[in-house]
Design a protein around this nucleic acid. Structure first.
Lengths: 415, 415
DNA sequence: GCTCCTTGTGGGAACGATTCCACAGCACAG
DNA sequence: CTGTGCTGTGGAATCGTTCCCACAAGGAGC
């Protein structure tokens, strides 16, 4: 394998000169420059990233840890992360933690050993224990989707409470009063927040919560199926099921099919997180869709700022609104996809902003990026809420401009 | 960051001793052993993979290059690759080449610079140009799904000709005589093979092929939609569409919906490759399902053998049978999922083997692994065809035993 | 008593880049 | 004529491991 030394001798200069040429810092005469270029071309030299990384303590690797790689929600996040990372010369390693703390821990150790430049993690949940080495070794880290108590890091997440509340309101508006909740693992903040949203919507509608209709366990399809079967077998009456994510919905659907129950005629069903491809093939599942791609881009953007040392402040938190997509499974009369409008505290859904983009208003991505730059310590901000005012007031700085440019160059979005 | 030197001084031994302890070769007294363990624990030492890789010219990174990360076919392959890789202490980097040669080329260069231990690639197609550096630098490489002319490497692929022929036969058996083919990029072998299968089935049934009903372009959803629209607009009559993969089917479906055409009542539809999650939610699309997970495990297995130098022979090729899953979109009367039985030359479908596993017959994975070990140069072998006889005759060697053990420990399969 | 083997350990040279420092040549100011 | 600053280059140390080699202590065999 060709080394920088080979290039140097062939070009008749020293290793230092070649190194300066490659890195672009320091003086290199046009003459030497030409000879080095030729030499590199001739022997097909590719610098050894190991040697470089060893010396510089930098690498171009970004690690993304996800709990379930086959879930398209995480794949879409990966696309977002990857697109931004690649544009900045970074590559993405994906680790599938399979919802197990031990695997997560192993990956974290490996990432540290590999000297990754940064880590984005949708954590398995529960304790911060498996992520702790990241803090200890000061590896730039951004959380995505799932908050971890006691782990001080930037985070991009969905508005789980409001999202689930809106989803529940949808079912309530269709007349359902006994709504079962097939939740995920309560060790994850996501599950707790979604349950809170469910409770809030029911309380607002003055519907009593029946705790026997709330089921939690882990985030796997099989478990959701088992628990749904148990709910059905319990004899407790309910007319609708709210699943805490798309995989839980698949599990619930399995259990319902096994009993021959038709959806939505006999039991209505809705869930958090979309499965875009499934919806394309057959628009069936009513979902609260999260802007997964944008979540990925924003997380990577935050990570870049941390890695570059541009951002040294405290923990930042971006909360993104999701939007309701009504399809058949909830039994709504008008089962065409609807983009939710302003909901709750004047929030504007991502889809709307994108749709309105042609009239000069900012795209969802621009907006989120601007909001990102304006997030202050400890202050929770909805990127799709406080948008326009922030965009106008925020003094544009380098990282914001860069991100906006990136966003503009991005060919595809979330949906 | 703690180094091996810190550990050594703390434990009162030399770097060499610590190194021997970590790598597990060479003598280390129980006494030193205990002190080193304690020291590592105390200072939270994680060996620097860069330094190690620089010295050993080895890394624990496996690169997987896929053309479209959001397609669950490739995600499932990734799961297979990852599971086997992790079990052998390797990590997987995923690169999304987006069906573009330039991106593929860039990833290949990066992988070489990163000193990856091996590469598995579902190539963008056309020429071998972008992969050529892998050959030049002698990086162990295995192709998956897509063969590349002139690129001499092990490959795991589906039986595209037979698979597509069977899919066409299914439509023919339902009475369709004018069947449109929405193919992918003819620069990829996959597309050419699938077209060949389509032609073969029609020829066997003595149905004339109407070339105007065959459309090819690239592998993107949008293009398939455009081309399907064009076919519909052409006025050429057809009663069914065969899509070359799941994404093409989504594109076709979009075009059909736009024209208000019902599937399967007005036009029947079937495609190659399943989308498991979509099918779970609503069993709609009739597909020729490939054993994606197994493809991943086998590719990784072959790669391990190349990396370890156990295998030095010529190019090996494993061809896996796919199986027909009949759902609603093809308009078959009995629209329940069926596992195809023996088809053509005595081939046994993967699903059947797995289903029959309890009676002592080998699992699909065992079988494929055994077949793998027996593949001879230039000889095309269907892992699910010649199975039992090979299993009996093949002298078990180390790599086969190891792979079989791995297969047994694998918790989940393809479907 | 010498050699040989085993067990156990440490020294030091790599691996292939980066980067600090020194220095050569040259122009120009004081 | 000396000092200073600039351009352009090379030398050499360094990053954190691995691994070859040397060597020490102790026992066995001749």
């Amino acid at each position: 394998m060709a080394t920088i030394h080979d290039v140097a001798t062939r070009a008749g200069v020293s290793r230092s000169t070649v190194s300066r040429f490659i890195s672009g810092r320091g003086y290199v005469s046009p003459d030497a420059r030409a000879r080095i270029t030729a030499a590199i071309e001739e022997i097909g030299f590719v610098p050894n990233a190991m040697a470089r990384g060893l010396k510089t303590r930098r690498s171009s690797l970004i690690a993304l840890l996800v709990p379930e790689i086959v879930n398209s929600f995480y794949t879409t996040i990966l696309r977002g992360v990857e697109d931004v990372a690649n544009r900045h010369g970074f590559q993405v390693i994906v680790g599938n933690t399979d919802e197990t703390g031990a695997k997560e821990r192993a990956y974290v150790e490996l990432m540290i050993a590999s000297q990754v430049a940064g880590v984005i993690v949708a954590a398995v949940g529960g304790t911060a224990a498996s992520l702790e080495p990241l803090l200890q070794k000061r590896v730039p880290t951004v959380l995505i989707d799932r908050a971890i108590d006691g782990f001080e890091a930037d985070i991009v997440k969905g508005d789980n409470v409001d999202g689930m509340a809106e989803l529940a309101r949808h079912l309530l508006s269709l007349g359902h009063r006994q709504i079962a909740l097939v939740n995920g693992d309560l060790a994850t903040a996501v599950a707790r927040e979604r349950e809170a949203g469910y409770r809030r919507a029911l309380a607002e509608a003055e519907v009593a919560v029946d705790d026997a209709l709330i089921s939690s366990g882990d985030w796997f399809i099989d478990d959701a199926e088992r628990r749904t079967s148990a709910l059905l077998a319990s004899g407790r009456p309910f007319t609708a099921i709210l699943a805490a994510n798309n995989f839980m919905a698949i599990g619930a659907l399995r259990a319902l099919r096994q009993r021959g129950l038709r959806v939505p005629e006999e039991i209505a069903l809705a869930c958090f997180d979309d499965i875009e491809q499934a919806a394309e093939i057959e628009p069936f599942l009513t979902v609260m869709a999260q802007p997964a791609y944008t979540m990925g881009t924003l997380a990577m953007q935050m990570l870049l700022e941390r890695m570059g040392g541009h951002e040294r402040g405290g923990r930042r938190e971006i909360v993104l609104a999701s939007h309701l997509v009504i399809r058949r499974s909830s039994g709504a009369r008008d089962a065409r996809p609807v983009q939710s409008g302003a909901v709750g505290n004047g929030r504007i859904a991502a889809a709307e902003l994108v749709a309105n983009g042609d009239d000069g208003s900012p795209s969802a991505e621009d907006v989120a990026v601007v909001a990102l730059a304006s997030v202050e310590r400890g202050k929770e901000v909805s990127a799709f809420g406080t948008v326009t005012s922030i965009a106008k007031d925020a003094a544009p700085n380098r990282s914001v401009e860069g991100a906006a440019r990136d966003a503009a160059a991005t060919p595809r979005g979330d949906e």
